[in-house]
């Protein structure tokens, strides 16, 4: 099974925790990831997604000047690069988030999304099934071969069936 470090995104948009909501909005507008990780000394302490932004800023009328920590989701669920994909999926299913920062030695090294994990598992299983099919076909051919051989050699076999 592949691990989280194979599917994670290494180019993560990050913000210092002192940043303003306006900066977060600019960062979100520029990148395609749909979130920004809030860090303190390279350690993720929160995450701001497009959803947080739209929900808080627009409905409660917070201004762009306020601190980003007002709208971030914190604490954030973290993953490690060595985590197996099915463990990651288990966490995703219990936490119900879509994006998870990946940390190694308390440093942010990447970001993993639900989509990437599901797709990677699906691809892995497809490979697994193809191998299963090849083994199955080889096995059937081998059996057929044994049957054919058996017809010719059973009379010379030492045991008496």
């Amino acid at each position: 099974m592949a691990r989280v470090n194979k599917v994670m995104l290494t180019d993560v948009p990050t913000l210092k925790k002192e940043a303003k909501i306006g900066e977060a909005a600019k960062l979100l507008a520029q990148n395609q990831v749909g979130c920004a990780v809030i860090t303190e000394d390279n350690k993720p302490i929160g995450i701001v997604t497009e959803l947080d932004f739209v929900r808080n800023l627009a409905s409660k009328g917070k201004s762009l000047k306020e601190n980003v920590s007002k709208i971030m989701t914190s604490p954030v669920t973290l993953m490690t690069p060595a985590m197996k994909l099915d463990e990651a999926l288990k966490i995703i299913d219990t936490k119900k988030f879509r994006r998870y920062p990946v940390v190694e030695n308390e440093t942010l090294v990447g970001l993993v999304t639900k989509k990437d994990v599901v797709n990677a598992i699906s691809d892995n299983l497809r490979l697994h099934r193809n191998i299963q099919n090849v083994v199955l076909i080889l096995f059937v051919l081998f059996e057929f071969f044994v049957f054919v051989i058996y017809r010719y050699i059973y009379q010379y076999l030492p045991f008496g069936f």
């Binding site: 306006g22 909005a25 507008a29 497009e50 959803l51 627009a58």
Partner: peptide, 27 residues
């Protein structure tokens, strides 16, 4: 929801996503 369908006479003509909204607010 995270996106809306923009319709004109019951025909979809565009999409508005959260990302578009944020871009709109920024600009």
């Amino acid at each position: 929801v995270s996106g809306l369908v923009v319709v004109e006479r019951n025909k979809p003509i565009a999409i508005v996503s959260e990302n578009d909204i944020i871009k709109g607010i920024v600009s």
